[in-house]
Amino acid sequence: MVYRWQRSARNGGRWTERTSGLARGERAHNPNPLGVVPLVELPNRSRLWGKPRSEIATVLPLQDAVNTLWAHLMTASDGLALPARAILGMDRPVREITDPDTGEVVGEEDLPLDRFRSDRLLWLEQQGAQIAEFSAANLDNYLRVIGVAVEHIAAQTRTPPSYLAGKLVNVSPDGFAASEAGLVAKVSEKQRHFGSALREIVRLEALAQGETGRAESLSLGSVIWRDPQFRSDAQYSDALVKLKSIGVPDEALWERIPGVTPDEIERWKTMRTDAAGAILGGGIAALYGPKPDPADQDDDQADDELTGAA
């Protein structure tokens, strides 16, 4: 069933059966035209017992550690990233407090150091005063620990390190492909488990469109995935030529070409059949373009004769 509900702000925000449209013959509750609940689960790491597991459940502690170290790094960079200077052997600068009526000194207060920081000037009048310096904190220790944690995250999630670090320096194609081997295997595993759920989604779409025949055909079909590993056109061509050499049919090779649709494959089959018919019928020249019209050839020949006579 399909249950229709509504909530009005004037009714205290409570849910009630939807009554709008009932005058047109609509009902608050209607039979479900699909016959099934239109929700499909795509479970991640599904198991025979227990709930599916999140893909990032195992790396959440490491991610929390990276966030904590990054917060410490920001805090340290705010207060300890620059050298600090100290004055030794001198009293803190103060200024006298005088009575506005009598002009007598009644006390003293510390002189704010903001002026010295802004003007970057300081007078040392006391004998033996000197300036010492504290070196800035080394923040590389935080970065090294964060880098190691990121490498562990990449290893546990089978993510290529270049995806997280963003550094590619003098990496060979074979080395880059090897670094993506874990991710490609992971995606291939997801394709195997998500295929049935996606097939059910498409079947429900056909039922929603009222195409019961197509829905029944889709329930017996299979999901065809694209190759998860990126390869250049030269690599695909070389692989297809080698498969052809061991007797793999052309139709099977065409299906392996990225981006090729079944309609294109059917068109290629028709073109191959037409080419074979032209060869058997003696019209090989038709394969290289339309044949010239004899009338056009006679006109061209007459034009050439007139040009020669002139």
Rank of each mutant, 00 (worst) to 15 (best):
G277W: 03
P249S: 13
G281C: 05
R256C: 00
W268L: 15
Q297L: 15
G166R: 02
I131L: 08
R85G: 03
S46I: 14
E189Q: 12
E255D: 02
E41I: 08
D304Q: 03
I257Q: 05
K269T: 12
E305A: 08
I279C: 09
A81N: 12
G308L: 08
G12D: 01
F134P: 01
P33N: 07
G175W: 01
D78Y: 09
A76F: 05
Q297W: 05
A275D: 07
A86L: 13
D293Q: 10
T102V: 03
E133A: 05
A197E: 01
A137T: 06
K51L: 15
N30Y: 08
R92G: 07
G12N: 01
S46L: 11
P52I: 06
R192A: 05
S77V: 03
A185L: 12
D64V: 03
L143C: 11
P258W: 00
L124D: 00
A57V: 06
D114C: 03
A197Y: 09
S217F: 02
S222R: 12
Q191A: 06
G195A: 09
R256H: 04
A278C: 06
L60F: 08
D99S: 01
D91F: 07
A276W: 12
D298Q: 11
R18E: 09
E266N: 15
S77H: 09
A285S: 13
P294G: 02
A215V: 05
A206I: 01
I224E: 05
D140V: 07
L48I: 15
L183D: 00
G89I: 03
E216Y: 02
E133P: 00
M74I: 07
R226N: 13
L253K: 10
A137H: 08
A206H: 04
R4Y: 11
T19E: 01
R53Q: 14
E17H: 11
D296A: 13
D238R: 06
Q63W: 05
F230L: 11
E96D: 14
P43Q: 00
E125H: 06
E255M: 14
F116E: 05
N32L: 08
E305F: 07
Q130W: 04
A129V: 12
L204D: 14
V150R: 04
A185D: 09
V40E: 02
V37C: 14
P290Q: 09
A208N: 06
R53D: 14
L287G: 04
A239N: 07
E216W: 01
A76M: 08
D263T: 14
K291D: 10
T273A: 13
S179W: 01
